[in-house]
Protein backbone atom coordinates (compact mmCIF):
# COMPACT_ATOMS: atom_id res chain seq x y z
CA UNK A 1 0.00 0.00 0.00
CA UNK A 2 1.44 3.28 -1.07
CA UNK A 3 0.47 6.69 0.20
CA UNK A 4 1.84 8.39 -2.86
CA UNK A 5 -0.77 11.05 -3.72
CA UNK A 6 0.09 10.61 -7.40
CA UNK A 7 -1.32 7.06 -7.36
CA UNK A 8 -4.91 6.71 -8.38
CA UNK A 9 -7.19 5.69 -5.49
CA UNK A 10 -8.81 2.27 -5.22
CA UNK A 11 -12.53 1.80 -5.92
CA UNK A 12 -14.76 -1.13 -5.05
CA UNK A 13 -17.14 -2.02 -7.89
CA UNK A 14 -20.75 -3.20 -7.56
CA UNK A 15 -22.76 -4.35 -10.57
CA UNK A 16 -26.50 -4.75 -10.92
CA UNK A 17 -26.95 -7.48 -13.49
CA UNK A 18 -30.67 -6.90 -14.05
CA UNK A 19 -33.28 -4.35 -13.01
CA UNK A 20 -34.86 -5.40 -9.76
CA UNK A 21 -31.81 -7.29 -8.48
CA UNK A 22 -29.39 -5.92 -5.91
CA UNK A 23 -25.98 -4.48 -6.82
CA UNK A 24 -23.35 -7.15 -6.13
CA UNK A 25 -19.69 -6.70 -5.35
CA UNK A 26 -17.58 -7.89 -8.28
CA UNK A 27 -14.08 -6.56 -7.56
CA UNK A 28 -12.07 -3.36 -7.55
CA UNK A 29 -9.92 -1.09 -9.72
CA UNK A 30 -7.86 2.09 -9.59
CA UNK A 31 -9.11 5.32 -11.16
CA UNK A 32 -8.53 9.04 -10.78
CA UNK A 33 -12.14 9.97 -10.04
CA UNK A 34 -15.63 8.40 -9.78
CA UNK A 35 -16.49 9.00 -13.42
CA UNK A 36 -13.33 7.27 -14.60
CA UNK A 37 -13.95 4.45 -12.13
CA UNK A 38 -17.39 3.86 -13.66
CA UNK A 39 -15.98 3.93 -17.19
CA UNK A 40 -13.21 1.52 -16.30
CA UNK A 41 -15.62 -0.73 -14.48
CA UNK A 42 -17.78 -0.77 -17.60
CA UNK A 43 -14.73 -1.88 -19.60
CA UNK A 44 -13.48 -4.60 -17.27
CA UNK A 45 -16.57 -5.93 -15.51
CA UNK A 46 -19.41 -5.69 -18.06
CA UNK A 47 -17.87 -6.78 -21.35
CA UNK A 48 -20.33 -9.68 -21.64
CA UNK A 49 -23.56 -7.91 -20.73
CA UNK A 50 -23.06 -8.64 -17.04
CA UNK A 51 -24.60 -5.38 -15.95
CA UNK A 52 -27.13 -2.66 -16.41
CA UNK A 53 -25.99 -0.41 -13.54
CA UNK A 54 -22.67 0.25 -11.80
CA UNK A 55 -21.82 1.58 -8.35
CA UNK A 56 -18.28 2.56 -7.41
CA UNK A 57 -17.30 3.24 -3.81
CA UNK A 58 -13.90 4.53 -2.58
CA UNK A 59 -12.32 1.47 -0.97
CA UNK A 60 -11.25 3.57 2.00
CA UNK A 61 -14.90 4.41 2.72
CA UNK A 62 -15.74 0.79 3.46
CA UNK A 63 -15.51 -0.34 7.07
CA UNK A 64 -15.35 -4.06 7.66
CA UNK A 65 -15.81 -6.41 10.59
CA UNK A 66 -12.69 -8.30 11.67
CA UNK A 67 -12.37 -12.05 11.03
CA UNK A 68 -11.37 -12.54 14.68
CA UNK A 69 -14.69 -11.05 15.76
CA UNK A 70 -16.77 -13.47 13.71
CA UNK A 71 -17.59 -15.77 16.62
CA UNK A 72 -18.63 -12.91 18.87
CA UNK A 73 -20.78 -11.37 16.15
CA UNK A 74 -22.46 -14.36 14.62
CA UNK A 75 -22.51 -17.24 17.10
CA UNK A 76 -25.39 -15.79 19.13
CA UNK A 77 -27.74 -16.66 16.26
CA UNK A 78 -26.78 -20.35 16.45
CA UNK A 79 -29.12 -21.30 19.31
CA UNK A 80 -32.08 -19.22 18.12
CA UNK A 81 -33.65 -21.84 15.92
CA UNK A 82 -37.07 -20.43 16.77
CA UNK A 83 -36.37 -17.70 14.20
CA UNK A 84 -36.99 -20.35 11.53
CA UNK A 85 -40.43 -21.61 10.47
CA UNK A 86 -39.34 -25.24 10.75
CA UNK A 87 -39.10 -24.85 14.53
CA UNK A 88 -42.89 -25.00 14.93
CA UNK A 89 -45.17 -28.02 14.92
CA UNK A 90 -48.27 -27.36 12.91
CA UNK A 91 -51.47 -29.27 13.64
CA UNK A 92 -52.18 -32.21 11.35
CA UNK A 93 -54.10 -31.20 8.23
CA UNK A 94 -53.61 -27.42 8.40
CA UNK A 95 -52.98 -26.00 4.94
CA UNK A 96 -51.19 -22.90 3.65
CA UNK A 97 -49.23 -22.33 6.83
Amino acid sequence: MSNNPNNWPLWEVFIQSKRGLEHKHVGSLHAADPQMAIENARDVYTRRQEGQSIWVVPAGAISSSQPDDAAMLFDPADDKTYRHPTFYTMPEGAKYI
Binding site: H84, T89, M90, P91
Partner: peptide
Protein backbone atom coordinates in the same frame (compact mmCIF):
# COMPACT_ATOMS: atom_id res chain seq x y z
CA UNK B 1 -42.17 -13.36 8.35
CA UNK B 2 -42.52 -17.04 7.72
CA UNK B 3 -42.15 -17.94 11.38
CA UNK B 4 -44.44 -15.17 12.65
CA UNK B 5 -47.67 -16.68 11.46
CA UNK B 6 -46.69 -20.19 12.50
CA UNK B 7 -45.79 -19.23 16.07
CA UNK B 8 -49.16 -17.49 16.40
CA UNK B 9 -51.11 -20.41 15.00
CA UNK B 10 -49.17 -22.75 17.30
CA UNK B 11 -50.20 -20.67 20.33
CA UNK B 12 -53.84 -20.87 19.22
CA UNK B 13 -53.64 -24.61 18.56
Amino acid sequence: ESFHQRQGYEIMA
